[in-house]
Design a protein around this nucleic acid. Structure first.
Length: 453
DNA sequence: ATCGGCTCGCGCAA
DNA sequence: TGCGCGAAGCCGAT
């Protein structure tokens, strides 16, 4: 049963007598723990119709490259098979999500969409809702507490969002029981769509940026995500609070790429972690703080701040103080290319950059240090913001995620408070290598990251 | 090793 | 209007 607050009509058009209920999959790329899918199945059962799933595979998602597409397609291939196992046909069309959804909506009774919070995802849904001739309903499945239920405005920090999430948490942290599929859609006559058996040839047929190679360190897909989560709970959760910040230990879940593509449900992950046996409460709480409060603070940021991907999206006090120190002498200055090639004087910074470029994922604590240093070693804070975000989006598997936008902005003062004034940073929180060495085993970090690009 | 100060703005209590 | 407090800070004093 999907919570009613996850369900929102996106237009006022009627249902029509079509051949099937259409689930337009976009953000939640999974066949289980997917409220939009289960809602679609429930509606289809009530109408005595089958469910068809459509996915529009566009080569034009902003800033997406081979690395992102490979990971996403590994997940989609598995999802397609899992859906077939439930008697649900998934059609993958090589065109924009909007036109793909509209094409199959022509013969549908009702269109169900999942939810994504980025600007482009909201725009896509708006267009589909406006141009479809049928009722379009959006079902939230990307966060635990739907962002507009938690708050109706941009929150100032984790401190102000946390109680708002807590208020609703229990209501939304519930099992999602799969609906039985009463009428299967595997035999329907439909557009073929493209096959996903051979991902190399699918990728070869897409007009995408191929300059960033796929990574072997993380394979996409729900199974892989579940495996990582299980292992995390078994082996790492019981020391999470103490160790998760240490880049040398890497004691983290590694779920963020999977969450980014909707290959695993945050509700499922939260429930699994809560149900873990023999783990101290503080560790469970520390993980849920990341998975829910911090992640959903990032979603709040991209939903309510129209400048979430620009320097202008920073709070007034941060821009003011950075502006005041714009002319300060920088001890080092690097170009975007020097950053990209990990050619700074700082071995920790270079290691972080190499970790990101080679594995597609940088340790959480290093992401902060990394962006703070780009601010310190670039001529203007606005350039630094742009460079940090561009590199993040290019090389992280979960680039262009709300977490990335909020994470970079945090390094420039967003969701943070002012600190003692100093050169370049002004009152924005400063970090340095001595801090890393004081607290963590940085030799271990250097050892676990490839020594060169 | 530990501690206070740094400094802004939100939200709540009064 | 006052007050407490905040993602992971740093720095100098003790």
């Amino acid at each position: 049963m999907v919570e009613p607050e996850r369900i929102q009509p996106l237009n006022r058009k009627p249902r029509r007598p079509g051949r099937y209920v259409l689930y337009w999959m976009q953000q939640s790329q999974r066949a289980e723990w997917n409220p939009a899918l289960e809602y679609a199945v429930g509606q289809a059962n009530a109408l005595g119709q089958p469910v068809v799933v459509v996915f529009g595979l566009t080569g034009r998602f902003p800033e997406a490259n081979l690395r992102h597409y490979r990971f996403m397609l590994e997940g989609l291939r598995e999802t397609l098979q899992a859906l077939a196992g439930r008697g649900i046909r998934m059609v993958v069309l090589k065109e924009s999500p909007v036109t793909a959804a509209l094409r199959l909506a022509a013969e549908a009774s009702l269109l169900v969409a999942d939810r994504g919070y980025l600007r482009i995802q909201r725009l896509w849904r708006q267009r589909v809702a406006r141009r479809a001739r049928i009722s379009v309903v959006q079902v939230e499945g990307d966060v635990v507490v739907p962002a507009d239920v938690a708050s109706s405005k941009e929150e100032y920090g984790a401190r102000t969002l946390r109680p708002r999430i807590q208020r609703h948490l229990e209501r939304f942290l519930t099992d999602l029981v799969p609906e039985p599929v009463r009428k299967d859609s595997l035999g329907l006559s439909l557009e073929e769509g493209i096959r996903l058996d051979d991902l190399d040839s699918v990728l070869a047929g897409l007009q995408i940026d191929r300059s960033v190679p796929a990574v072997g360190s993380f394979r996409g897909g729900t199974c892989k995500a579940r495996e990582l989560l299980d292992r995390f709970i078994q082996e790492r959760l019981s020391t999470y609070r103490q160790e998760s910040a240490d880049p040398g230990l890497n004691n983290v879940s590694h779920l963020s790429p999977y969450l980014h593509f909707g290959q695993i449900s945050p509700v499922y992950a939260a429930l699994e972690v809560r149900r873990a046996r023999g783990v101290r409460r503080e560790n469970v709480e520390a993980f849920l703080e990341q998975l829910i409060v911090r992640r959903e603070l990032a979603v709040n940021f991209v939903l309510y701040n129209p400048s979430y991907d620009r320097y202008e999206g920073l709070p007034e006090w941060a821009r003011r103080t950075l502006e005041r120190h714009k002319a300060d002498r920088r001890a080092y200055l690097y170009t975007e290319q020097e950053f990209e090639r990990a050619e700074t004087h700082d071995p920790y910074w270079n290691a972080a950059q190499r970790e990101m470029v080679t594995t597609g994922k940088m340790h959480n604590h290093m992401r902060m240090y990394w962006a703070k240093k780009i601010l310190e070693w670039t001529e203007t804070p606005a350039d630094a913001f742009r460079i940090a975000l561009a590199l993040n989006n290019k090389y992280e598997i979960d680039g262009r995620d709300p977490n990335g936008f909020a994470g970079v902005a945090w390094c420039f003062g967003k969701h943070d408070r002012p600190w003692a004034e100093r050169p370049v940073f002004g009152q924005v929180r400063y970090m340095n290598a001595a801090g890393l060495e004081r607290k963590f085993d940085m030799e271990a970090y250097l050892k676990r990251v490839p020594p060169r690009l």
